[in-house]
Write a protein that binds this DNA or RNA. Structure first.
Lengths: 126, 126
DNA sequence: CCCGTACTACGATGACTATCGCACGAGCAC
DNA sequence: GTGCTCGTGCGATAGTCATCGTAGTACGGG
């Protein structure tokens, strides 16, 4: 088939976009954030990101699911405004959008993180 | 099939239980609470319950959905430990489980309520 | 005793979602 | 260049969920 070449005509849906779509700060909705945080896998990711307080690549966070599913969860977190994703070579770095979330919903993220940790302690038999 | 009669033998699944099943305090899970709160209709109910700081009957809370759907949402809120439901004659009273939620997840409910109000103000053109 | 009000239960349905496997594209190392 | 690793996209599938309509049950009042 010759060179695929991607002539750049179909700008609407680029096959592999080098820049990822994020909601602006004032596009972030509380229900969406709560929904994103309501999944155990995603809550786990968010907790880890908050713990290291730095960007992590998708493969740095170990989840008991396949790669495709991991990609899916990271996408949900990004599209709902919880994390920010940027390319860095072959890796994709993920960082918590603490500034935006704290500005929109003061204290919410911290209370959720505290609640998650407290619950984990409680369920661990102590 | 003759008179329904409900002879009391099948205690496992009573047709119309006068007492409703609620999760105990230590049965309440963070993910479930977040999931319950992530729905616009249910968040609306919770906000109203918090605002009046008293028990409301199911029909006191006006939602743009049918009765069946309203029942469904109240059930989800109860089964996830967000509200407490008690019968009172033909009416069913609903009250927020503030004590339990605050004990398990300190500050979480308040931050969510604040965030919801702040977002409403923001979306209403401010 | 009959009726109205309040709520529930039972499908049914359409939408969304979490999961997988597989094949592909993009960059890095040699 | 060739190959390796990382991540994406695309079905497919099974499960959950929000919604409805209809029919039913419980309680209180005339």
């Amino acid at each position: 088939m010759g060179s695929p070449g991607r002539s750049g005509a179909d700008v609407t849906t680029v096959t592999s976009p080098r820049v990822l779509a994020h909601p602006a700060r004032d596009e972030i909705r509380l229900e969406d954030v709560l929904h994103a945080l309501a999944d155990p896998m995603r809550l786990r990711v968010v907790r880890e990101l908050a713990a290291v307080d730095a960007d992590l690549s998708c493969s740095d966070v170990e989840l008991p699911v396949t790669k495709s599913t991991t990609t899916h969860h990271f996408r949900v977190l990004r599209e709902n405004g919880v994390i920010r994703q940027t390319y860095r070579g072959t890796a994709k770095m993920n960082g918590l959008r603490r500034d935006d979330l704290d500005a929109l919903f003061p204290g919410l993220l911290d209370r959720v993180l505290e609640a998650a940790q407290s619950q984990e302690r409680r369920l661990a038999g102590r």
